[in-house]
Design a protein around this nucleic acid. Structure first.
Lengths: 167, 167
DNA sequence: TTAAACTTTCAAAAATTACTGAAAGTTTAA
DNA sequence: TTAAACTTTCAGTAATTTTTGAAAGTTTAA
């Protein structure tokens, strides 16, 4: 496998993984491209490499910046803007975990807490609703707390922790 | 909030979370419905409660069974088939982790290993591709190994472990 | 200021994904 | 066997999501 094959394989695999996990393909592919690029890329560079439109590129770069994993860079003396990925894998993981917790997990935990807190009325179905949503609440809440621990630790806490668990 | 409101809120929230994580809404909602139902439900029951078609119900039940989190039950003396959810939250988590690892993570790890193993050619871009995909490979591999540890432990290992990490 | 160089927005179109419903298939009781 | 009771399949349709591209917006150099 030469450079171009490897690059294309990585970009397309990353795009598919994104799709599977609810992230749009263009966004995941732009991230992949920047992740392996030694230099920041311009919008033109990205459009050309991935064969996507200017609008699509712009919108997805914006999202990647909202997620905190891509940054704008301006080269001195140039009008054009360049984009660069967060390059540290630990920081990438922290940032993704943090955002998914904030946007997706926390709101669900809130609903689970509310739903599992309704008053029992003596019926079996209400008991079951309370019992099952409470179990989900407790699991989700522990998992989320752990994620946030990770997010707020020094950068290689993840690896250290995983190592500790694995051995 | 009364029973019906709580039930509807749970089902619709679970459906939306599914969508966000790449799982189709009907599948997530059927799971939610069975999760809180004290008794197994028939296909008719599910269709009626969620206002979805027979075909849709059938296909998504099949998928839930493929994931190993919903089971067919036949009541003695009845032709109709009934469906019940895995009720243990630990087992649910184990099963979901196991399947996502097998279907989605493992194949990506394989690609990352291949891509990061290409031979360097002295160019900066090849070096960067190797370095960055290797970093991703190592993180993904550790995380996956941990997931599989969890999957193969006794049922409340998750909670114990999370507790240990949190305090 | 002006206008060139660039980015963002957004309505419309395309692509993808999910859903329906009727026909085909299967199972079981008699 | 037959036929009733049920489930699955799948082609067509609908809904949703993504993408495009041109117009509007912004920035900066002169």
């Amino acid at each position: 496998m030469n450079y171009t094959e490897a690059k294309d394989k990585f970009i397309s695999t990353w795009g598919s993984l994104g799709t599977l996990w609810g992230i749009n393909k263009a966004m995941a592919q732009i991230h992949a491209l920047l992740w392996i690029s030694p230099e920041p890329l311009s919008m033109e560079d990205i459009m050309e490499e991935l064969h996507i439109s200017r609008g699509n590129t712009s919108m997805n770069l914006r999202q990647l910046m909202d997620w905190g994993i891509v940054f704008k860079e301006s080269k001195p003396g140039e009008r054009k803007e360049y984009f660069a990925s967060e390059k540290d894998v630990q920081e990438l993981a922290r940032q993704v975990a943090k955002e998914r917790s904030r946007r997706e997990i926390k709101p669900v935990i809130k609903v689970l807490r509310e739903v599992s807190a309704i008053e029992g009325d003596g019926t079996k179905k209400t008991e079951e609703l309370i019992k099952q949503t409470k179990a989900l609440y407790e699991l989700a809440d522990s998992a989320d707390t752990m994620m946030n621990k990770i997010v707020n630790q020094e950068s290689n806490w993840i690896t250290k922790t995983l190592m500790k668990l694995i051995k």
